[in-house]
């Protein structure tokens, strides 16, 4: 008679189908950590093929002129730094190199502004260490921060009707420390209507585009820098021509960094060497491949592991069915 205390031995198929959760978690943790360390130690760079929507975004930002003003509507926090962090850093680097002025605010979370400030400070530090050192991007002269708007929809509707009414009561400190209207700053002094803003960039892991497109769409070219999970929803806005450019999560950040490194040639090929003036020039000799590329190898390893695990589960199911039949 069988001993009821002795558990029947599991078949290989059953074992492959029922890997314990903590084993899965540990494997993912190990693979991502190891790949991040390896990527850092050996500067591993995974190739990428920039998509049309990323190229459109790059072309638009790269071809802005010195003194142009853009809006950065941030919903990026440290929670989404893996995706929005790389996108934001790439955008800030481009603005600073092209001397494009920017206005920043958030209506997603109050902490977004603090997170963005820290990023600006980091890039300023990076610029000060460059050889030769590059001047710091200064609040008031080069950018202004409008802070947090608890109700973004009404603010955007007002800005679309009259931008000076919408932001008129916002103040910032000039270099002497005195508080003055943001419209006296070099960033906004020439802005009379929403159409004077050259590009509106929304960076967020959430769907802020529904609010933005509905209110300032058609008036200003809009670029969406979104987390990967929201990309399919945002892609509809791009397909219907309501967005001028789009970045798809971490992959979008990597593509943008690679475009900054290689540019788009006269034939529209990313990294191409065709003769003639490039459609969007690269930034040679600068720090281009940064946060996005540093995470990309780990991202690819994590996806590979995910697919491998799915295969393991299905092989287990096949073996188990075969055994039972």
């Amino acid at each position: 008679m069988d001993d009821p205390q002795v558990k029947p031995q599991m078949s290989l198929g059953a074992k492959l189908q029922s890997v314990k959760r903590h084993v899965l978690y540990l494997t993912l943790f190990g693979v991502v950590s190891l790949s991040l360390i390896l990527s850092h130690l050996f500067s591993i760079q995974v190739p990428s093929q920039p998509q049309e929507y990323t190229k459109e975004a790059y072309k638009l930002i790269r071809n802005l002129h010195e003194g142009d003003t853009i809006v950065i509507d941030t919903g990026a926090t440290n929670a989404s730094r893996g995706e929005n962090g790389g996108q934001m850093e790439a955008l800030l680097r481009m603005c600073m190199r092209e001397k494009v002025k920017f206005v920043m605010y958030s209506y997603v979370e109050p902490q977004c502004i603090e997170v963005a400030r820290a990023m600006i400070a980091n890039i300023n530090l990076e610029r000060s260490k460059a050889n030769p050192p590059e001047p710091a991007y200064k609040e008031w002269d080069d950018f202004v921060i409008l802070g947090f708007f608890p109700d973004g929809a009404t603010m955007l509707q007002t800005a679309a009707a009259n931008i000076r009414d919408a932001w008129g009561n916002k103040k910032a400190k000039d270099p002497s420390g005195a508080e003055r209207s943001v419209f006296e700053s070099p960033v906004l002094q020439n802005i009379k209507k929403i159409e004077d803003i050259k590009v509106y960039v929304g960076i967020s892991p959430t769907n802020i585009m529904a609010t933005i497109v509905g209110r300032v769409g058609k008036r200003v070219p809009i670029i969406s820098m979104i987390a990967g999970v929201m990309f399919p929803e945002q892609f509809n806005y791009y397909k219907s021509g309501q967005l001028a450019g789009l970045l798809n999560g971490l992959v979008g950040a990597v593509e943008m960094e690679n475009l900054m490194q290689n540019g788009i040639d006269s034939q529209g090929v990313a990294g191409g060497k065709a003769e003639g003036p490039p459609i969007a020039a690269p930034f040679p000799g600068e720090i281009n491949l940064s946060r996005g590329n540093s995470y990309y190898f780990a991202f690819c390893c994590a996806i590979s592991l995910l697919m491998l695990t799915i295969v393991v589960g299905n092989v287990g199911m096949y073996l188990e069915r075969k055994r039972k039949n």
Binding site: L24, R81, T309, I310, G313, N314
Partner: peptide, 27 residues
């Protein structure tokens, strides 16, 4: 705060990984 925020969000990856393993079967 900001690091704990990042930790909370990154935990989703573990849940997605586990859920994909259990649900993506060729049935």
């Amino acid at each position: 705060f900001v690091n704990l925020d990042a930790v909370m969000y990154s935990m989703i990856a573990f849940f997605i990984y586990s859920a994909a393993y259990r649900s993506f079967r060729l049935r």
